[in-house]
């Protein structure tokens, strides 16, 4: 990992997004203290973090596999951090019960971790991490093991929890939808480097490289030759599929290669002769069929020029 230069602000919901092996989890583990940097510098709230073991950092983690202690029941799992800090039994259980209530899981304290469903384990892991009142909560792909419906529900709950607690959330995910919908800011990782940092809107609208454009939403990449023809600049550009619209006159002529109905929208594969584009059209419009010739156009502002051709 190198060239990772990140600053996370207090109270922020920060997502680290990237394909597997891109260094996002390593980055999280560096913050948690499970790994030590070979070079470089980490600061947590202005204090140097190198050499500080995980148990002396005011940072707690929700693990990808939840890592609930199998020999303890739910309430003892949640109260573990308090027990280590020497809190009395009554106080410990009261605080743990509060934390379980916070994650909407009251009354399950006596169960064993093995008897819970995936979603419930996830909530226990969350309660266990929050019970120590950390200033930063690290989440390592916390929703990866859940099915779609539960994942969407948890996304919402995590956002609410973040608003409620006001602490910093750092979230690792390979799911771009998750990162865009939840985070205040997103850092995009590729091959051990941070390639772009910004708000979801910035990342989505103004990707700074072909990798970002391609990874975050499936953007159309326009090669320099094509871009030179329409804007006069010899650079790569990205064009979001939903920015393309059908038109009766002007624009570009294209033939429809394929057409797939996605419910609210319909996805068209278009052949412009020199390049292929994908367009996302609202399903209410009359949808052209494969083989048909159409004219397409887009607002010139939607063609986003990229400095980086990689």
């Amino acid at each position: 990992m190198d060239e990772v230069d990140l600053e996370v602000f207090e109270g922020e919901f920060f997502a680290m997004l990237g394909p597997s092996g891109s260094g996002k989890t390593t980055c999280l583990r560096l913050v948690a203290g499970f790994e030590q940097p070979t070079s470089g510098h980490i600061e947590i709230f202005g204090q140097t973090a190198e050499g500080v073991p995980p148990f002396r950092r005011n940072v707690n983690t929700v693990f990808q596999d939840y890592a609930l202690f199998p020999h303890l029941n739910v309430i003892d799992n949640v109260a573990y951090g308090l027990m280590i800090r020497g809190a009395g039994k009554a106080e410990r259980y009261r605080t743990a019960a509060e934390a379980l209530e916070l994650v909407a899981l009251p009354g399950l304290g006596k169960r064993r971790a093995g008897e819970l469903s995936g979603g419930q384990r996830q909530r226990v892991a969350l309660a266990r991490a929050l019970v120590n009142k950390p200033r930063v909560l690290l989440l390592d792909e916390p929703l990866g093991a859940l099915d779609l419906k539960l994942r969407e529900q948890m996304q919402e709950e995590l956002k609410n929890l973040h608003r409620q607690l006001g602490i910093t959330f750092i979230f690792v995910t390979h799911d771009q939808n998750e990162a865009l919908s939840m985070a205040d800011r997103v850092a995009l990782f590729n091959q051990g480097k941070v390639v772009q940092v910004g708000t979801p809107q910035e990342i989505y609208r103004c990707p700074n490289s072909r990798f970002v454009a391609d990874f975050v939403g499936s953007s159309n990449l326009l090669p320099p030759e094509f871009v030179a023809g329409i804007s006069g600049q010899n650079k790569w550009a990205s064009l979001r599929p939903e920015a393309i619209r059908l038109t009766s006159a002007g624009g570009h002529e294209a033939s429809v290669v394929a057409c797939s109905y996605l419910g609210g929208t319909t996805r068209l594969a278009l052949d412009l002769g020199s390049l292929r584009l994908h367009a996302l059209l609202p399903s209410v419009a009359t949808i052209p069929q494969p083989g048909q010739r159409v004219r397409i156009d887009w607002n010139p502002d939607d063609v986003h020029l990229m400095e980086d051709g990689i």
């Binding site: 499970f34 148990f55 983690t61 693990f63 596999d65 890592a67 199998p70």
Partner: peptide, 28 residues
């Protein structure tokens, strides 16, 4: 059979090496 992240979870929650041995590794 025991997940390696249990040890990390214990450390993360404030337990030092000895406490992790006593409260997490030994019971498991």
């Amino acid at each position: 059979r025991t997940s390696a992240s249990l040890v990390e979870a214990s450390m993360d929650l404030g337990a030092d090496g000895f406490q992790t041995l006593r409260y997490v590794i030994m019971p498991n």
